[in-house]
């Protein structure tokens, strides 16, 4: 018979390296037509990081995502970056980019201030314009300011900056310290169906509520969460590298190493928990890794709810779950026996 169950997985996860320095640098150049070019040493590994980083630069300069072209991944031309690891790109590289864009913007403001008869501190960059705070009617197109800076004043609006998350060493004896600058939190809740005759587990539904600080690009955040869940489903139910008694892997291929296909995926609802981290770029933290963290826990708790067996070693394959169900039945029968 098929039995349904629900289970929760809740987690916390840090952004960036554990204590160790993990800086990123960035350069932002505003072109004479008001568009911008961003140089970053990070590499797009599929998450959409370059899009998000472009959005951060654009936000700071008051221009649109499409106005920023991102140059990345060439050690000869792009500044150093610790790279796409530890869910740090949006937070650490993002902070560096925001600082770099701020510096480029300062040059624009210094150039624009006399043109608008105000002090640079009275200016803001909004909607492709440099305008006077509280008096938006007085403004100049950013293109005009950039052209003036570049061609008339000889002050190219280029900014470079670096960011490294502040941490405090951990005491070697007690581990006390501040290993990370910030953390994210998340909950996933799974609904599963367990066939108690075969041990087969189907994940039917997953509701996922993730904190990532400000979602710079909600569409890409959703993509990360959905992808993380698929990796979590594989970790929970299917994937395992197996070795023979001589330490040689016996399933080094995708025929025998089973990973999730489109048929294994549950229906997913994603919620982004509203949050703002003052230390992140525009309040953002990160989302990449945490998405794969609570999935297996949620699924195993749902299996427990469905058929009352506790999987203590992953993956929860059908054989393993069936064995646990049989053991449980045998135990129940034993307990019943004296009464007979």
């Amino acid at each position: 018979m098929k039995q349904k169950g629900k289970g929760i997985g809740c987690m916390w996860y840090p952004i960036g390296f554990t204590v160790a320095a993990n800086p990123s640098a960035a350069t932002v150049k505003v072109n004479e037509d008001g568009t911008a070019t961003l140089l970053t040493g990070t590499v797009e590994t599929g998450q959409g990081s370059l899009t998000v980083l472009g959005q951060i630069a654009a936000e700071e300069l008051g221009i649109s995502t499409d106005d920023v072209h991102v140059v990345s991944a060439d050690t000869d031309t792009t500044p150093m970056d610790t790279g796409a690891i530890a869910s740090r790109t949006t937070y650490v590289t993002g902070n560096a980019i925001k600082l770099a864009a701020e510096k480029a913007k300062e040059i624009l403001f210094e150039v624009a201030a006399p043109m608008l008869n105000v002090k640079p501190s009275q200016l803001e960059a909004v909607d492709r314009k440099v305008q006077v705070k509280g008096f938006p009617q007085r403004n100049l197109p950013i293109s005009e300011v950039a052209l003036q800076a570049q061609f008339v004043q000889g002050r190219p609006p280029i900014g470079s900056a670096s960011f490294n998350p502040p941490t405090v060493d951990m005491d070697p004896e007690t581990g006390q310290g501040k290993p990370f600058s910030t953390y994210v939190y998340a909950t996933q809740i799974a609904e599963v169906e367990v066939d108690d005759e075969t041990g087969q587990v189907d994940v039917l539904y997953m509701s996922a509520a993730h904190d990532c600080g400000t979602a710079i690009n909600p569409m890409l955040v959703e993509g990360q969460i959905q992808g993380g869940i698929s990796m979590g489903v594989g970790f929970a139910l299917q994937e395992e590298m197996l070795f023979d008694e001589k330490g040689v892997q016996i399933n080094p291929n995708l025929t025998n190493y089973i990973m999730p296909t489109s048929l294994d995926m549950p229906e997913i609802d994603v919620d982004i928990v509203e949050n703002f981290d003052p230390t992140g770029p525009f309040g953002a933290k990160g989302v990449g890794e945490p998405t794969a963290v609570p999935t297996a826990a949620a699924i195993c708790n749902a299996i427990f709810d469905a058929v009352g067996v506790r999987v203590t070693s992953l993956p929860a394959t059908a054989e393993k779950v069936l064995k646990l169900i049989k053991e449980k039945r045998a135990n129940e029968n034993k307990q019943l026996a004296p009464a007979e």
């Binding site: 992808g227 993380g228 698929s230 995926m265």
Partner: peptide, 10 residues
């Protein structure tokens, strides 16, 4: 068609 990144959802 295996995809490791997206969870196939989108």
């Amino acid at each position: 068609n295996l995809c490791r990144c997206t969870g196939y959802t989108k």
